[in-house]
Design a protein around this nucleic acid. Structure first.
Length: 687
RNA sequence: GGCGGCGUAGCUCAGCUGGUCAGAGCAGUGGAAUCAUAAUCCACGUGUCCGGGGUUCGAAUCCCUGCGCCGCUACCA
């Protein structure tokens, strides 16, 4: 197992968040919170660990956002860099350094990386024809080309995708293409780019992946899927003004492709961290010494970049260590639906922070992290977890222990006398806890770790109950003192054990116990069972985890409910009034006919398509219809349907279609075929 | 369509390389206790372990196949 390697230091990264929008819960649950818990734990273990993150500030979406707002790309990234950095900080993210890819160090680092691969002759150059806007004097990224969708005829489709029908396109597919910048008709022009031939690295990547026996199955699965398809050449540069300039003569207007420079951001941020420490060469130890355990925390959308492309880049360069693990998480849903940032169906971190406490969110996200499959954030569950676990089990144990000590022992830790079997069992459980919980964290099983933590509090409550100190105080005061001594020391241990997940509450508890310093600077294995010695004076007692009321989260649930309703309605209710009116003559040109389905079969290699043989009067013809998701071929046979009979023929997936069937769609996207409320001969005209 | 992940009690999920694996938490029912944030503790369950084949002395756990959900990818009048 590679985790048993003798590493001397750990370098942890979380995916660089893209600086064109705020952070939401999905980000946190996938790439940030798990990493932070892992890192906080490693620090308590006194391991040499550095945690790096930063803003990813290049790429086309940022330039588009800038265009829209009529500001510079720099202004966009400045805003979100600060905003996200601030929100992360408040959420307790303990980055050692939070950098940004627009920094000079990053530009220089990326350029040096590029030049190194260049010198080693890794790249291929290729010339292609791409759309060029003369007025703007630049090649247009896919998203900057608008035009008519060749698939559905939508007039304002993007060059990479049609928003209306969802088709993925290439800019040259569009009819009547226009530049989104100037409205000019772009022209095809030759342009040259550098490509990394990933295929050359296929074997090395495969061998490296094959040696990983402790990676998550979902990660390995994704990677193998890519490898099976074979790795192709991939452009590392593109024509754009925003980004890291290609550091060569005659490369005007060319920048590094954002997928290439973004992961290098981990390296440049580490450099800046080292500089800040006044030890500028120190980054090399972390990136270039084989004693480093490199761990990338990411969401599953990033697997291919961190498990194939970046490692291939690192291999190509030759001086760097490869990741020891990439514990990618799946996605977090919200109240049963996918998050949608564009439709504001999300819980934004900075918004959350203005209303609620941090630790309950960290706790709930940790228990529901999408480790093995997509999971769901549900506000009511968040509330229940907070109330029944943090408050009732953990918080209440602390409270009953401290309150009892306050009342019966004047807030002084009582001495521990002779122990009985229950005491010994409890002490044993407590002594084992750091190891057990730590092992789970080492294996990136955060949900498990949190459960184990709560189990300690559960056994503590049971222990308190079974020892009945409220009864023994009367006849066996020494026994009562022993019980409370142990309970108090359990509290001290809990403060430490909960520190990675609940750093703020852990520190509050540490103070409440009358302990000095920072709990986050203790040693995970150093806590003594007499951490709180007899006669130690406790601090001020207060409620550590407040219970929450349903009324507090009700507005959040309601907001999401409305956002979801809009989400469903938007595509389902196209505004009739927006379409221009047509005359009766125009309508007359559309020939609607009743048709009988004679035969139906699925179109091979297409999910949605049915190939239908239909009869219209005497005539038999073939049409292709996109209804396979909702109608089985068998159930179509014999049906009377309405078709547009005089539509221009088209070829779909190589099959000729002579007409179009009519169907309505409900808000869930389900089809309902138009039919007749009494039988009419096939061929009958509908009007 | 290709590839991958997942499909276990009402809910959320553990169950690694086959042999106390049929489990935990929550919710529900009954009880104990009263130090504590109306908190805690104990007892109790119906599960065709998605369906169907197969390998094996033995499979939730391995193989094949079907179905469903999710994702990547292709395609999508």
């Amino acid at each position: 197992m590679s985790s048993s390697k003798n590493y001397q230091r750990i370098l942890v990264t979380s995916a660089l968040p893209y600086a064109n929008g705020p952070i939401h819960l999905g980000h946190l649950a996938g790439a940030y919170l798990p990493a932070d818990i892992y890192v906080r734990y490693q620090r308590l273990k006194k391991r040499d660990v550095v945690y790096i993150c930063g803003s990813d500030e290049h790429g086309v979406p940022i330039t588009i956002a800038a265009e829209k707002k009529k500001v510079s790309p720099q202004a966009i990234v400045d805003e979100y860099h600060l905003r996200n950095k601030e929100a992360f900080y408040k959420f307790g993210m303990s980055f050692d350094y939070y950098g940004r890819t627009s920094s000079p160090v990053h530009h220089r680092t990326s350029q040096e990386f590029f030049l190194k691969l260049m010198e080693k002759g890794i790249f291929k150059k290729k010339t292609e024809k791409q759309l060029y806007d003369h007025q703007a004097g630049m090649f247009l990224p896919d998203r900057y080309v608008r035009g008519e969708c060749p698939v559905c005829g939508f007039a304002d489709a993007y060059g990479d995708q049609c928003e209306k029908c969802g088709s993925s396109l290439s800019p040259t597919d569009l009819k009547n293409p226009k530049s989104a910048l100037t409205g000019q008709v772009p022209e095809l022009k030759e342009t040259m780019h550098w490509y990394i031939p990933l295929g050359d690295f296929q074997q090395r990547v495969e061998a490296w992946i094959a040696s990983q026996d402790d990676w998550k199955s979902n990660v390995l699965g994704q990677v193998k899927s890519w490898l099976n398809q074979g790795l192709a050449d991939r452009a590392v540069t593109r024509d754009l003004s925003w980004g890291v300039k290609v550091p060569l003569p005659n490369a005007e207007g060319k920048v590094l492709y954002v997928w290439f420079d973004a992961p290098i951001g981990y390296i440049s941020a580490t450099k800046e961290w080292a500089e800040q420490l006044g030890d500028p060469e120190r980054w090399k130890t972390y990136w270039q010494d084989q004693g480093t355990k490199l761990v990338h925390f990411i969401g599953k959308d990033n697997i291919v970049f961190h498990c194939i492309m970046f490692p291939a880049m690192l291999m190509a360069h030759g001086d760097y260590v490869l990741p020891d693990n990439v514990p990618a998480n799946e996605f977090l849903n919200l109240e049963g639906s996918k998050l949608s940032t564009s439709r504001n169906y999300a819980v934004w971190l900075d918004d959350y922070l203005t209303k609620f406490e941090v630790d309950p969110l960290r706790y709930y996200l940790a228990t529901t992290a999408p480790e093995t499959k997509d999971s769901d954030f549900v506000w009511m569950e968040y509330l229940q977890r907070n109330n029944s676990e943090l408050a009732d089990i953990l918080g209440n144990f602390i409270n009953r222990t401290l309150a009892f000590t306050e009342k019966r022992f004047n807030g002084l830790v009582p001495p521990r006398g002779a122990t009985d079997q229950l005491d010994e069992e409890m002490l044993k459980t407590l002594a084992a806890a750091p190891q057990v919980i730590g092992d789970a964290i080492e294996r990136y099983e955060l949900r498990k770790a949190v459960t184990l933590l709560m189990d300690v509090a559960r056994s503590a409550n049971k222990y308190f109950n079974d020892q009945m100190p409220w009864a023994t105080i009367k006849e066996q005061p020494e026994k009562c003192a022993t019980t409370l001594n142990i309970c108090l020391n359990i509290c001290a241990h809990l403060a430490l054990l909960m520190a990675p997940v609940l750093p703020f509450s852990a520190q509050k508890l540490w103070r409440m116990l009358g302990l000095d310093g920072d709990v986050n600077e203790q040693g995970w294995d150093d806590l003594k069972i007499d951490q709180l010695p007899p006669r130690h004076k406790l601090g001020d007692l207060y409620i550590l985890f407040r219970k929450m009321e349903e009324s507090e989260i009700e507005p959040e649930i309601e907001r999401l409910r409305q956002a979801k309703a809009q989400l469903n309605n938007a595509p389902a209710a196209p505004a009739v009034e927006e379409s221009p009116k047509i005359s009766i003559e125009q309508f007359g040109q559309v020939q609607l006919r009743v048709a009988k389905v004679l035969a139906a079969e699925k179109v091979a290699k297409a999910d949605k398509l049915l190939q239908l043989q239909i009869q219209i009067g005497e005539e038999t013809r073939q049409i292709v219809a996109g209804i396979a998701l909702h109608y089985q071929p068998e159930e179509m046979i014999g049906k009377k349907i309405i078709v547009v009979a005089n539509l221009q023929p088209a070829t779909v997936r190589g099959i000729e279609s002579n007409g179009m069937l009519l169907a309505a769609q409900d808000e869930n996207g389900h089809f309902a075929l138009l039919g007749l409320d009494r039988d009419v001969e096939a061929g009958g005209r509908a009007r």
